[in-house]
């Protein structure tokens, strides 16, 4: 169990929330969550841990697809949030190369209260706005919708195509759906709110 001591729950949380909000309001804009050397358990990107530390508290629950015990202990110790099954959790921490089973079960809200849906935090290897910064297999995402001026292209490495297909199926009945945040190993984040549509091309 790690109790984070270098994390400032007032000012770090505020700064990171502003970056998450900026990315959420402008899908396709990559922001970097840095400045804090937290030590999350293995198989959790540092940016994903910082998202959890910024937004979780005792009012909400989370689900971790991999390494659930270590991540569960970590978030419980640092945020007083509690683990829950995927179908009930408010935050789902998934791996980009996972089977999309957790995502399939995630809460998508109701027509009268679509805000009672889950946030999905997905760890990927690399996020970039330009193609040449990534080597190896990658996906090309073209985002459009509220927050995007026209279209925005983002390149993602370490993300399973099946996960994106499931995400699109979850969000097909707008306003029902889930809101996702992708994080990479360089602390960058990319948000895909359910209001956005995306087209995937493999490269």
């Amino acid at each position: 169990m790690t109790r984070e001591t270098s994390y400032d729950e007032i000012f770090d949380a505020q700064a990171h929330f502003r970056l998450i909000m900026d990315s959420m309001a402008r899908p396709g804009k990559l922001n970097v969550l840095n400045g804090v050397s937290v030590q999350p358990p293995g198989s959790l990107n540092r940016a994903s841990a910082l998202i959890g530390l910024a937004l979780l508290n005792a009012d909400v629950s989370f689900f971790a697809a991999q390494n659930a015990d270590a991540i569960g202990t970590y978030f419980t110790a640092n945020t007083a949030s509690r683990p829950a099954p995927a179908a009930e959790a408010d935050f789902l921490f998934l791996q980009g190369l996972d089977h999309p089973q957790g995502l399939e079960q995630a809460k998508s809200g109701t027509l009268t209260y679509p805000d009672t849906s889950a946030f999905i935090v997905i760890d990927v290897a690399h996020l970039s706005l330009t193609r040449d910064q990534i080597t190896g297999p990658m996906l090309q995402l073209q985002l459009s919708g509220p927050g995007v001026d026209g279209q925005q292209t983002v390149f993602v490495a370490g993300l399973n195509d099946a996960l994106l297909t499931t995400l699109r199926e979850k969000n097909v009945e707008y306003p029902l759906g889930v809101d996702s945040i992708l994080t990479d190993q360089n602390d960058r984040i990319l948000c895909i709110p359910r209001s956005n549509r995306f087209v995937v091309g493999g490269l």
Binding site: I20, M21, M24, A25, L55, P114, D115, S117, F119, P146, G147, P175, D179, P193, R194, S195
Partner: peptide
């Protein structure tokens, strides 16, 4: 607020 932004 994040949910509000996701559901304009």
């Amino acid at each position: 607020l994040l949910k509000a932004i996701c559901l304009p």
